[in-house]
Design a protein around this nucleic acid. Structure first.
Lengths: 145, 145
DNA sequence: AGGAATTAATAGCTATACATATCATTTCCG
DNA sequence: CGGAAATGATATGTATAGCTATTAATTCCT
């Protein structure tokens, strides 16, 4: 049957390719950051003071996973965590000034590598792929949650 | 910028969706197997006596990862590993009779869940998506390596 | 008010995923 | 032939990724 010609396998390989492109560009630019960490920083930056569950919901993570991601971001000094005054179970997170600076430096880099993720596709094909991907996830085209 | 509207993020979520659909169906059918393990079994079944590096190359794994995957398949009694007579560094793997039986039982299940991975896409859209995905990976449409 | 249900994190467990280093073996080449 | 390079596995370390259970705190409901 050749499972490696099937949907799940193709998607797994796209994920590999995407992760590798991101990691390579980030490393070359001198940043030790993963695509997951960048996405978390983006969500935090857009919603300062959001709690961890909120971050998880925004970028579709498991809540148990997000804690470790944020731990590492705190370890780098890019994120600060504090106990919410409103709800003492919750941990509010926000970017530190250093985190803001790193994010600002990464942003153009990340924008620039987007096309590379989809490799040999033409601009029209890339748009078609992204549109189909959004539909396959049953997600609004551009959703600012 | 909302990184979670970008290519890498969409692909990651598709990967999540794909993994979850596979896991859910496999579990409901009473099998404790991941999509990665299934892909490895498929490659091994198509190439009995292949070595681990060969399996890794076929399905685009990291060589360091494949050992653990095969360890778990051996633990379930579905794969047998032996030292190659031709090259004593290499470990030849093949499905056991039990592994063959499990694979045969999984195969129709896996075929049936393919469409679900791409959720709300129409048949034509699914075909278009898969075609674009293959092109994005610079892979032959159907390649039996 | 007070117990029940819910929710936010965390901890522990399993499974990818990949980089690097190491070891054993084989192949390549002068 | 014999040392160098290459190759197949394994070991180690880091980073997702998600499940379940647990703890702490809040909210809901009677």
């Amino acid at each position: 049957m050749e499972a490696y010609a099937m949907a799940g396998h193709l998607i797994r390989r796209l994920h590999q390719q995407s992760t590798q492109v991101f990691g390579q560009h980030a490393r070359e630019a001198g940043f030790d950051v993963t695509s997951v960490q960048f996405a978390a920083m983006d969500a935090i930056r857009s919603h300062p003071g959001i709690d961890q569950a909120g971050v998880a919901a925004l970028i579709a993570y498991d809540r148990a996973t997000i804690g470790g991601v944020i731990d590492r971001l705190i370890g780098k000094g890019w994120v600060a965590r504090s106990i919410s005054a409103r709800d003492r179970r919750a941990r509010e997170v926000r970017l530190t000034p250093g985190g803001e600076a790193v994010f600002a430096a990464l942003l153009p880099l990340v924008r620039a590598l987007q096309d590379e993720i989809l490799g040999p596709l033409s601009p029209g094909e890339r748009a078609a792929f992204l549109s189909l991907a959004r539909k396959a996830l049953a997600v609004d085209p551009v959703q600012d949650a």
